[in-house]
């Protein structure tokens, strides 16, 4: 049980930019309330650092409600910290105890170079989507009526579950192989499960996987850490589905 007014030791990765080497730096923070979010705790630390004339810790964050996918801290060796099904911004200090030491690091992967401190470049994910993570339909206002094609509720729901991926990169950060297959599999699955996605399903999976490989992400070896630490609880079934789609596309390339 955490007390109302905690003192914590923080060990935080500090790195000036992409070019200089980084290191862990120790900080002590006092007066931490259990109702604070983890990022609010960092806000308090930064406030103090600025007042002292030090450089505040740079970190990515935006919505602070677990949906934008921007926050990305590796806390005590776990992507987004000790709780399951949440992002760093949804983690609250009540999950820690007075006197704890907390290690805070950026996502570590060849595909995610560090920009500064805890901030990394996840442009690789955008480039994978650009390679095929879409359905080719122009804006026209003349598409089919939305109810023209019924979609079985189960398929729609499964597609939705895959589509809830927030692109945060926790799967990559937590995987010993730095594999991005949970991310790619989620998008491939969403479209493979929907009839709208079928015309391009083969070239989509081939193109996305090709880009994934070019970005330097590793392969899946069925460890399963990604689905444990995924803040949206996306199942590794999406990787299995992606593999089926991929092999199907290789065996019979035309649609």
């Amino acid at each position: 049980m955490s007390s109302e007014n905690m003192t914590l030791k923080l060990k935080i990765w500090r790195q000036k930019d992409s070019f200089e080497a980084g290191k862990m730096v120790d900080y002590t923070i006092t007066g931490v309330s259990p109702d604070m979010s983890f990022l609010e705790m960092i806000d308090v630390l930064n406030d103090d650092l600025i007042r002292k004339g030090d450089d505040p810790v740079a970190f990515d964050h935006d919505c602070r409600e677990g949906i934008c996918g921007m926050c990305s801290m590796f806390i005590n060796g776990e992507a987004h910290g000790p709780n399951r099904g949440v992002t760093t911004c949804q983690l609250h200090m009540r999950s820690f105890n007075d006197g704890d030491t907390i290690y805070i690091e950026p996502w570590r992967s060849q595909g995610f170079p560090v920009i500064k401190d805890l901030m990394v470049d996840r442009g690789a994910f955008d480039r994978i989507i650009q390679a095929g993570g879409f359905i080719s339909v122009n804006t026209s206002g003349r598409t089919l009526d939305a109810n023209a094609i019924p979609i079985a509720k189960e398929d729609a729901d499964t597609a939705f579950d895959a589509a809830t991926c927030i692109g945060c990169g926790a799967c990559v950060a937590t995987c010993p192989n730095s594999s991005a297959m949970l991310f790619v599999g989620a998008k491939v699955s969403q479209f493979a499960l929907l009839p709208q996605g079928h015309p391009e399903r083969k070239e989509r999976v081939v193109n996305m996987v090709k880009q994934m490989d070019e970005e330097g992400f590793g392969n899946c070896s069925n460890i399963g850490a990604c689905e444990v630490q995924c803040p949206k609880n996306i199942s590794i079934e999406v990787i299995a589905r992606m593999n089926r789609e991929y092999f199907g596309a290789l065996v019979k390339p035309e649609n």
């Binding site: 339909v137 089919l144 597609a159």
Partner: peptide, 25 residues
Amino acid sequence: EVSTNIIDQCVAQGVPFARDYGGLL
């Protein structure tokens, strides 16, 4: 007026809106 086009467009893009058991939105 254009509100109805939006739903058509988004479904065509593969946006997984909630559906009922008959498969309709």
